[in-house]
Amino acid sequence: MPRLFPRLPLMTAQARRLSRWLFAVATTTLPAAALAASCPGADPEALKWLDRMSRSSHQAAYHGVVTLQRGEDMQVMQISHSVSGDTTSEQLTKLTGQGARIVREDHPLDCVHTGHRLLQLGAALGAGECGVAEYYRFDVSEGERIAGRQAVRIRVEPLDMYRYGYLMELDRETGLLLKSSTLGRGDLVLERFQFANLSYGSPMPSGADVEVTHEAAHPLPDSAMSTEDLHSGWSVQWLPRGFVLTEADPATRSGRRTFTDGLAAFSVFLEPLSREIRAGEGIAREGSTLSYTRGLSLSDQPVLVTVIGEVPVNTARMVADSVRWAQ
């Protein structure tokens, strides 16, 4: 819709005014767009950087060593991303702990998933669209040197209490995300990942011992949840602003739904139980990842709802609270 005006160069000034007015009327009926009209926190420079970051992660060819720190635990891994023709392949090899490798081959270059689409505002920016700026505030400043590259720092602060903040450092030349800290309440660092070294271009030579190789699914991995267990469809009735389904049309019988706001993601799993269990809730945490499990009865059917993702516990609780069978 934002491209409406450039595509109609022959309109008179009056027609343009009229269509602009119609556009405004049409968009105010959408709550998201209505808020877009007032997004003073939107920093166009930050949004441009996010757009670049999202594109470069998919389109650039690079490899390097990355560290992931969560509490006392530090993991080291190799990451490589290569482009050949109009597809990309990527690989992550764990160098510490479990010798595991995750591979994704033949990912089409023009395949942009929901989360990235939310960051790649492009032309929509000029049309008053705020995108992620509706639920985060951004602050761009000079970054440090990371893996030998000069970085741009983007401080990302959530505007509500349903998501975490981030401190991101992007390669000033390519936009690639070099370092990212996930910040909880009081700027407590929940997780930090960072490139230790980075090379653009040639694919990485690989010599690491690997016990397990996992082929990352694309586009849709099969759910581990057996679909026969679900006798009817279900949905999540409440979501924090900006979170949308990662798959446009999830199979109604699938036991999982995943949502993203472009920066964070969480998945909701529904398991029907064959017996009543005492209602209750519990959580487990690893770094920025939360697992929130709740036992309840949905229209007399006992179920376990589990929310797993990089979101605060209040988000998980509200979401789990709103799971309903489809009518």
């Binding site: 996010l50 970051m53 992660s57 989360g115």
Partner: peptide
């Protein structure tokens, strides 16, 4: 597939 950190 849906957050900025790629395979991380």
């Amino acid at each position: 597939l849906n957050t900025p950190q790629g395979m991380l």
